[in-house]
Simulated scan of single mutants.
Amino acid sequence: MRRTLLAVCAALIFPLAACGSEESTNSLPDATTTAVSPSSSAAAPTTTVSPEQALYNEYAAALTAAGIPFRPGSGLGSGAFSSDQSICKAMRGGTLDAYQLARVELGTAGEDNKRRVTTMVPILCPDQQPLLAEALSGNAVMTRFIDGKYIVSQGGSAQRSVMPGTYSTGPVSDCYWERADSQGNIIDNNMVSISQSITVTIAESDGAFTSKKCGPWTLVR
């Protein structure tokens, strides 16, 4: 009877032990599944700056460091950055010569505008620094002007003035030009239906010059 009881107890105890052993084994964390691999960690985000944005950042930093006020904005057609890019384009294209640069951007536009232009040229159009230097020298000569009505002035001090000299333009179609004295009396004029080129000399004694549909005039001498 005693042997039978021992056998029964043994039969009950061993399966329980086996079950306990299996449960404790399965409850241990698997090192191969919980360990974090260095290669699987998320890479630090990187920010890509476009060349245009980098140029704007340099431009804005230079103006800010110099204490020069400017309209922010790096998008097309926005802020002083876009305006100054247009100035650089005009300088490169020849539509803004040293004389006009000195007279308008470095003169009538105001001191803040002058400081901004002299600061931005080395950044946005460094190839135009010789033109800027000529404009700042005070010795720039008018080499080009467009259609309009002008007061003839040796120093070009009037708001809309042209310096005496010989200028040419062309080709033209239906171009009208006129030289007048200081009282507005016509000295010489011409209406040109069509021509490959026109050359006109504006004398120091002239008072005014008018050009309609003649295109840009360029200084010859």
Results as ranks from 00 to 15, higher is better:
18 A>G: 13
61 A>G: 04
115 R>H: 12
69 P>M: 03
32 T>A: 12
2 R>V: 13
107 G>P: 14
220 V>H: 01
47 T>P: 01
20 G>T: 14
28 L>M: 15
205 S>N: 08
140 A>V: 04
141 V>S: 06
46 T>I: 05
31 A>C: 11
63 L>M: 04
214 C>S: 03
90 A>R: 10
81 F>L: 13
204 E>C: 09
23 E>K: 12
134 E>Q: 09
5 L>W: 04
95 T>Q: 10
129 Q>E: 01
122 P>E: 00
67 G>M: 04
170 G>S: 11
110 G>N: 11
28 L>K: 14
210 T>D: 00
212 K>I: 12
87 I>C: 03
131 L>V: 11
70 F>V: 04
187 I>V: 08
44 A>Y: 03
86 S>E: 14
164 P>Q: 05
155 G>C: 02
172 V>M: 00
116 R>P: 14
130 P>N: 01
169 T>A: 02
6 L>M: 07
162 V>C: 05
186 I>Q: 09
143 T>F: 12
51 P>L: 00
82 S>N: 06
74 S>A: 12
99 Y>L: 03
32 T>G: 09
217 W>C: 07
160 R>V: 15
127 D>P: 13
122 P>G: 07
219 L>E: 01
216 P>F: 13
132 L>D: 04
184 G>F: 13
41 S>V: 12
74 S>C: 09
216 P>Y: 14
38 P>Q: 10
156 G>F: 03
142 M>S: 07
26 N>W: 10
80 A>M: 10
157 S>H: 11
40 S>C: 07
101 L>G: 09
58 E>Y: 01
139 N>R: 11
85 Q>N: 14
141 V>D: 01
9 C>Q: 06
192 V>W: 05
102 A>I: 11
193 S>Q: 13
160 R>D: 13
194 I>Y: 13
110 G>D: 05
70 F>M: 00
202 I>G: 06
65 A>Y: 04
30 D>V: 11
130 P>R: 08
63 L>V: 02
206 D>Y: 00
120 M>S: 15
172 V>N: 08
27 S>G: 15
144 R>C: 00
75 G>Q: 06
189 N>S: 14
96 L>F: 00
63 L>W: 09
55 L>E: 08
132 L>S: 00
32 T>R: 09
25 T>I: 08
207 G>L: 05
1 M>H: 05
